[in-house]
Design a protein around this nucleic acid. Structure first.
Lengths: 139, 139
DNA sequence: GTACTTCCTGTAGCCACTACAGGAGCAAGA
DNA sequence: TCTTGCTCCTGTAGTGGCTACAGGAAGTAC
């Protein structure tokens, strides 16, 4: 059983973030020492690392909680995990597409800036009507 | 001079968001009617629309404030605008790259799910050591 | 005994909104 | 004139996923 600082080092999760995860119920409350300090087992460290990996993959916390509720149970979990992962993948694809469109729009705008005049054509374009409607989408 | 509802329609900015922009100082405080209701001029609507377009392009609010401080002033603005836009473009590129990497990692993980066994290989991979380090980057 | 580090709780801040409560004004029809 | 329904007002709190800080207690090394 190790203290939170070591748990942080071994899992790669910030101390404050570990406490945050505990507070919102992502990971279960760990045991405590007689003085009230958190003590983590190897399993709990593994769970923290799992959460970190999922977060690095961009999964939102509620999805990770669903994942954690599946681990250990054998039946039906794989299909649901796959569905959640595919949904997430679709969202990532949508984000990439959106950013690519935005990139194009921005590139078109800023290349006008090269013409050497003092007033900025990019700001002009943004101020004038009729631009930008093609970009407006939520990421 | 029109009321906030019309200003919202004409600019495409949500009413609550208009008030938020006023509160944080993105747009100047508008005039008021005798009863204390906000009244917007054509110029102020244009400014709101400008802010919306910049937000749609993903510019953070402090940058938009810089843009707005440049509009109307002729000298030196274009070079600085270009720099800000290029920085932003670089950030978008970094985000796209990150998401693409993440996409790959996720695809590799979830395609293992197809093997028909009951326990989930994807969750297994995430629980085991040695995976995910290549993905960990801030978006 | 003392200096240093780690840990504790609780609260507030970040970004860019969004939602809601509880009230007031305004315009149109009966 | 009264009522109905819409718009608007202020102020506050919530969203997600942390991060930072204050003020204190406990542990460790010399």
């Amino acid at each position: 059983m190790i203290a939170i600082g070591q748990a942080s080092q071994q899992s790669g999760v910030n101390i404050e973030t570990i406490r945050y995860y505990e507070r919102v119920g992502v990971v279960p409350k760990p045991g405590r020492s007689t003085a009230g300090r958190r003590l983590y087992s190897v399993d709990e460290i593994a769970k923290l690392r799992f959460v970190k990996r999922c977060r690095d993959l961009g999964f939102p916390i509620p999805i990770i909680q669903t994942f954690l509720s599946f681990t250990g149970q054998e039946d039906r979990s794989c299909g649901e995990v796959e569905t959640l992962a595919e949904d997430h993948l679709a969202q990532i694809d949508a984000k990439i597409e959106n950013l690519a469109r935005l990139r194009e729009a921005l590139l078109n705008l800023s290349k006008n800036c090269d013409d050497g005049t003092a007033a900025c054509p990019m700001l002009d374009s943004l101020m004038r009507d009729g631009f930008g409607e093609a970009v407006a989408q939520k990421s």
